[in-house]
Design a protein around this nucleic acid. Structure first.
Length: 826
RNA sequence: GCGAAAGUGGCGGAACUGGUAUACGCGCUAGACUUAGGAUCUAGUCCCGAGCGAUCGGGUUGGGGGUUCGAGUCCCCCCUUUCGCACCA
């Protein structure tokens, strides 16, 4: 025989849930705040495979569990549907991105349905449709008004394959996050959002996010990269300007024996103006500039530098120090210039050695407290430094740093300064498939925002996709040519579109007003439902989406539209599913491009959606990365079949039987375990508990050791507890048991704590910490009675070997340990 | 280099606050039903030793040390792996 008829069962229940609109929530009339559960929005570029299933199946299991626990839950879903995959598909296959995207969405909705996933589709949003992206434009205009959006010429990351610029966050190790192509630097005029103005608030907010994984928080802290130190001015010896450097070690300023500027530094041209080898240096600068980021910042890349010929004054030491140019100083961090302290910085030391520059020790190895006004030998001297590592751990006390800053400040040589690694968010994209940026360029009026009443600026359908560089939008005359909203003269539209992360930075609020054509959302509704209680998604958005969403939430907060600053109270990162990839010969994240994605279709056809669900949840801890195993799936299938079969035999159970209490206890233990596990997202152990419960029930039915009424109660509980994981088969069995309501509307089984305790049990007995026997005792017994029972055990007596018991350790309900001697080392 | 997490059978992994290590599943072995099975069911399955046997003894959570009556769990040192950041001054 094969399995139960999963196909007809699943089809039947999927239809029923759809008719009942099982997940739909009436926002307006709900009395209490519902628990808002949300998954990362699905980028509609890829067909769903079993790797994706983990996110959605986990979310659905949680949703069903919450409902049964009596927590009304809102479970919306939307489509993050702008972006490059659609446009690339258009170029490669000649399908319009809009048609391709909307078609994908239709297919994916069908796949969700096959998995038995209940979403509240009445809240569905599709970011590529004008009724959604209109509000991106509205938000942009408001940010433009308040100075949070601005346009600026700047060196930016350009992906030569995607033919567009990228945000810093989308550059991973110098390569495009999406396609892996090495990113080039280009000087372009682009739109930015001023996220740097929120750096401190974004950082501080992390401390309050107790429901977020530490990993994500530390990644964000790292990304923001706040460092505290000082700016110090070094006036040019020739007079005129100063070079300002940033340092976190102002206490080492006496040891600054030279300065290093990034070759891109604005003063460089002036410094080398009179240099005899000016041409050679200029050529070298050009070479460094053109070096891709990935190479320049790479670990192995050699330090290269040139002496500019100019000198600057180190106020602290009273000496003139040479100004060098080198590739190891980055133009976009701090001030693009450093004071080199070779005695206390390994990079400076390496460079000083290479170029034969002086090294001066500021700290004597034993001397930690340094006063800037009394610095002298031996604290300050020509050190015999072999390796900078010798002075690791010689970080100054915070007071020392403060003393130096105050001293520099008092002399007018420097001041306290905080810098960040975080850059402003570059949102311009030179691509078609995104939200048009709503501004117009007029020769007379300059940059003119499109009036709110003219929104949305619709993306035209009629464009040509050639795959050549240049935005297809800019070749669409009827889009580009317009009139200036201010002076009505001929003008042209901005053709850059927005980064798709703008769409997803506030979409969770739109779920609460998906059909509102009057405003972005209703602040009153939002105050009742948001923030999101539980957000589920992969780690890949730890700094992209999740940082942007936190930023935009603060922007909306400052606009008075939302009352909170953190959009997501709890975050759960499920691990990815991996599989062996023929192409690379390695186990890798399941994905279509790697050729190791497994389609759920064949699996569902053969063993059913419940099998996929149970297996996916059983595979391993949800937060860990797990490898898909084709063969192990059948274990989940067998489990479901065994439930099905035992349910058919339940009628044969006797009216009375001896071991009733044992089965009843097992039932309560299982309720306890499954409830606890689901509260902690431990779906893998919850499934294991249900398997054990089934094993117990099957034995009881086979051996006729439990009464029919107890077996039926056990089966009912099993079916209820199973429902979040395997909704179809559980609904069918529930109906077969004669219940008329859907399991979703039943109450989660309740544990009777008293049932967890046993009157009699096997007490573990140890002698000197080693397990020797198990003795049957009653829970009510006193320590004295237990001791007597333990000493009655022949095995225990044998192992005691006549020795005296020095200590009797008794842990009620668990064990007894007889300690005979304390060994004293000689 | 800096930061974080983790090392448990042939494999994925259990073990709540220190208290029976190896639950549950895969795989494997034997058997049953079968024309056959990569279907299903039953039994067994951490390692070493003794015994025909039910059992008995010893060992085991990357390595070493410590705390404790008792350590996979806590502390210290070392090794390894994974992840994140990285010429960030």
């Amino acid at each position: 025989m094969s399995g139960y008829e999963h196909k007809s069962i699943e089809g039947k229940w999927q239809e029923r849930w759809e008719k009942q609109r099982s997940a739909e929530v009436d926002l307006k009339n709900a009395r209490e705040k519902y628990y808002m559960l949300m998954m990362f929005p699905y980028p509609s570029g890829d067909r769903l495979h079993v790797g994706h299933g983990r996110n959605y199946i986990l979310g659905d299991a949680l949703y069903r569990y919450l409902r049964m626990r009596g927590r009304r839950a809102l479970n919306p879903m939307g489509w993050d549907s702008f972006g490059l995959p659609a446009e690339n598909a258009a170029i490669q296959r000649g399908i319009h991105p809009r048609d391709w995207t909307l078609d994908n969405i239709r297919v994916m909705k069908k796949q969700f349905k096959r998995w038995g996933i209940l979403y509240d589709w009445s809240k569905e949003i599709t970011s590529c449709l004008p009724d959604y992206y209109k509000w991106n434009q509205w938000l942009f205009l408001r940010m433009l008004q308040s100075g949070l959006a601005y346009k600026r010429r700047a060196p930016v990351n350009w992906c030569p394959s995607c033919l567009t610029v990228l945000a810093n966050e989308q550059v991973i190790e110098g390569a495009c996050e999406r396609c892996g192509t090495a990113v080039e630097q280009r000087e372009l005029e682009q739109w930015f959002l001023r996220i740097t103005g929120f750096a401190d608030r974004l950082l501080e907010g992390l401390d309050g996010l107790s429901g977020w994984p530490e990993k994500v928080k530390s990644m964000q802290r790292n990304w923001i990269g706040r460092s505290v130190g000082a700016e110090i001015d070094f006036p040019l010896a020739q007079g005129g300007e100063s070079i300002t450097v940033f340092t976190t070690r102002p206490d080492t300023v006496h040891g600054a024996t030279f300065l290093v500027l990034a070759p891109e530094h604005p003063l460089v041209a002036k410094l080398i103006a009179d240099h005899p080898q000016r041409a050679e240096i200029a050529a070298w600068i050009e070479k460094v500039r053109k070096t891709p980021r990935i190479e320049r910042e790479g670990e192995s890349s050699a330090k290269e530098g040139r002496f500019s010929g100019a000198m600057a004054m180190n106020h602290a030491s009273g000496e003139a120090v040479p100004i060098w140019l080198a590739n190891y100083v980055l133009p976009d961090y701090g001030s693009g210039a450093i004071m080199a302290v070779p005695a206390h910085d390994s990079r400076d030391l390496a460079f000083a050695r290479q170029e034969g520059l002086p090294v001066r020790l500021v700290y004597h190895p034993d001397d930690r407290a340094v006063d800037p006004t009394t610095l002298a030998e031996p604290v300050l001297g020509e050190g015999r430094i072999r390796n900078c590592g010798e002075f690791d751990g010689l970080l100054p006390a915070p007071e020392t740093t403060q003393r130096f800053i105050a001293w520099l400040d008092a002399n007018g040589w420097g001041r306290a300064k905080v810098t960040y690694r975080l850059r402003d968010w570059l949102i311009s994209r030179q691509r078609y498939w995104g939200t048009p940026i709503p501004v117009v360029y007029c020769e007379a009026c300059g940059v003119v925002p499109v009036p709110e009443s003219d929104l949305p600026v619709e993306l035209p359908y009629d464009v040509e996709f050639t795959g050549r560089e240049g935005n297809p939008l800019s070749r669409n005359a009827s889009f580009v040519n317009t009139t200036c909203p201010r002076c009505q003269a001929a003008a042209r539209r901005e053709t850059d579109t927005m980064d798709t992360f703008v769409d997803s930075s506030w979409y969770y609020l739109r779920y609460l007003a998906a059909r509102d054509s009057q405003r972005i959302f209703d602040p009153e509704t939002v105050s009742r439902w948001a923030p999101v209680d539980q957000y589920i998604g992969g780690i890949e958005h730890a700094i992209l989406h999740l940082l942007y969403a936190r930023f935009i939430c603060r922007v909306l907060h400052d606009m008075g539209l939302v009352s909170f600053e953190e959009p997501f109270v709890n975050l759960f990162n499920q691990g990815m599913i991996t599989n062996f990839a023929e192409k690379t010969g390695r186990v890798e994240k399941m994905s279509k491009s790697k050729g190791n994605a497994i389609s759920p279709d064949a699996l569902i056809e053969e063993m059913g959606a419940d099998t996929e669900r149970v297996y996916t949840l059983f595979l391993g801890p949800p937060e860990d990365e797990v490898e898909w195993s084709e063969e192990a799936v059948s274990g989940a299938y067998r489990f479901l079949n065994r439930i099905w079969r035992v349910a058919q035999r339940i009628a044969d159970c006797p009216p009375t039987a001896p071991s009733d209490e044992a089965l009843e206890r097992l039932r309560h233990v299982t309720i306890h375990r499954v409830t606890r596990d689901l509260d902690r997202f431990k779906f893998n152990t919850a499934v294991a508990a249900l398997m054990e419960f089934l094993n117990g029930l099957t034995r009881a039915v086979d051996d006729k050791t439990a009464s029919k009424i107890r077996c039926e109660a056990a089966l009912d509980t099993l079916v209820q507890l199973l429902h979040p994981m395997a909704p179809h088969i559980s609904e069918e069995l529930w109906e077969m048991r004669g219940h008329s309501e859907s399991l979703l509307d039943t109450d989660w089984p309740v544990v009777d704590e008293k049932r967890l305790l046993r009157e009699q049990f096997q007490l573990v007995v140890q002698v000197d910490g080693k397990l020797r026997d198990r003795v049957e005792v009653e829970s009510s017994w006193s320590e004295k009675e237990v001791r007597a029972a333990v000493l009655a055990s022949p095995k225990v007596v044998e192992h005691l070997g006549g020795r005296e018991i020095e200590k009797f350790v008794f842990i009620p309900g668990r064990l007894a340990n007889l300690v005979t001697r304390k060994e004293h080392p000689v």
